[in-house]
């Protein structure tokens, strides 16, 4: 089973690769909308990639109000 830190690290890696942002520029408490410069459709895209990567289902209403990687990782971790 992944630790919370591993989950967070994998999300940061996934976001960096997909949105072509240097990994070192992403930190756990970043607002991913601002850091990645993504809109709502791209956020859905990120959600889908995360679901596939972790093999989990994350209802999108659980993401309401979530904008930083650390909280997002917490939501994922709760479903692993």
């Amino acid at each position: 089973m992944r630790t919370a830190d591993q989950t967070l690290d994998e999300i940061l890696n996934l976001a960096a690769i997909h949105f072509k942002v240097p990994r070192q520029k992403l930190t756990p408490d970043d607002d991913f909308f601002k850091t990645l410069g993504i809109d709502s459709l791209q956020a859905l895209d990120l959600l889908t990639r995360i679901e596939h990567h972790f093999n989990v289902e994350l209802p999108d209403y659980e993401l309401q109000g979530v904008s930083d990687f650390r909280t997002l990782a917490g939501r994922i971790q709760a479903r692993l």
């Binding site: 709502s40 956020a43 859905l44 309401q64």
Partner: peptide, 8 residues
Amino acid sequence: AEVLPYLP
């Protein structure tokens, strides 16, 4: 102006 208008 929400960032997630498509999310219910």
